[in-house]
């Protein structure tokens, strides 16, 4: 699904250049649930941003579902993001003047899905994350865990090939974190490819594979025995 070869990225900070990614190589197969771990500054967020086409790499190859991702125009990048990727952020990033339902329907709107169909589909995904009764609530009326579930529903609504989650549990308490992880595991069980960036050991162990990043290089890449999150809920 994702192939990365010798990825480099550096940021210019005034006269200094900060080399964040120093040659990353890895592949992710269809249906994997991968945790990217590392302390802050290890480059894990940068890697995710590049994978999410929010940022470009300096050099190296990135292929997503057989499509080379390189030198994209903003328009093209937006199109690919919409078609291929779903995002879940640490701070949820819901649009706060839109209801939960409208938030979930947003990526479908960008796909030019007709209004009615959009609403139905969004409702279906909200139901999937167990928030159907809250469909018409504004984000401000939802708890953190609920917000993140709306965000996950929104990321899934466009039926992306890969779900990218940037510290999805970073702003949640551990109980809610496990609920969210249970949901992510459920979505993964349905065959979706998911990438989770986290610095929490327990969250990482709920994935099927852990990639350890340190100072811009992969120091460890191992398959693990998945810990099911349901047992903690």
């Amino acid at each position: 699904m994702i192939e990365i070869k010798d990825l480099h990225k550096s940021y210019k900070m005034g006269s200094n250049s900060l080399h964040v990614l120093k040659g990353i190589n890895f592949n992710i197969e269809d249906g994997e649930l991968v945790a990217i771990m590392g302390s802050s500054g290890s480059g894990k967020s940068t890697l995710l941003n590049i994978l999410g086409m929010l940022d470009g790499a300096d050099s190296g190859e990135y292929t997503l579902d057989g499509v080379p991702i390189k030198n994209l125009s903003e328009t093209k990048a937006a199109l690919y993001r919409n078609k291929f990727l779903g995002f879940v952020f640490q701070s949820f990033n819901l649009i706060n003047y839109k209801s939960a339902l409208e938030n979930v329907a947003l990526p479908l709107y960008y796909q030019k899905v007709p209004r009615k169909e959009r609403q139905e589909k969004a409702m279906q995904y909200l139901d999937k994350v167990g928030l159907k009764p809250w469909a018409h609530h504004l984000p401000s009326e939802l708890s953190g865990g609920q917000k993140q579930r709306v965000a996950i529903a929104r990321a899934m609504a466009a039926e992306p090939k890969v779900l990218l989650a940037d510290e999805p549990t970073g702003a949640l308490d551990s109980k809610t974190s496990y609920e969210v992880m249970a949901l992510i595991q459920k979505i993964n069980d349905e065959g979706n490819t998911i990438l989770v960036v986290t610095h929490e050991e327990d969250i990482a162990h709920m994935c099927k594979r852990i990639v350890h990043l340190k100072d811009g290089v992969i120091v460890e890449d191992k398959k693990i025995e998945q810990v099911r999150a349901e047992q903690y809920v």
Partner: peptide
């Protein structure tokens, strides 16, 4: 700005 960022992450075209 943030909202625009979210929208673009979700795939809204710049011209839109």
């Amino acid at each position: 700005t943030k909202e625009i960022g979210i929208r673009r992450a979700l795939g809204e075209q710049p011209w839109s």
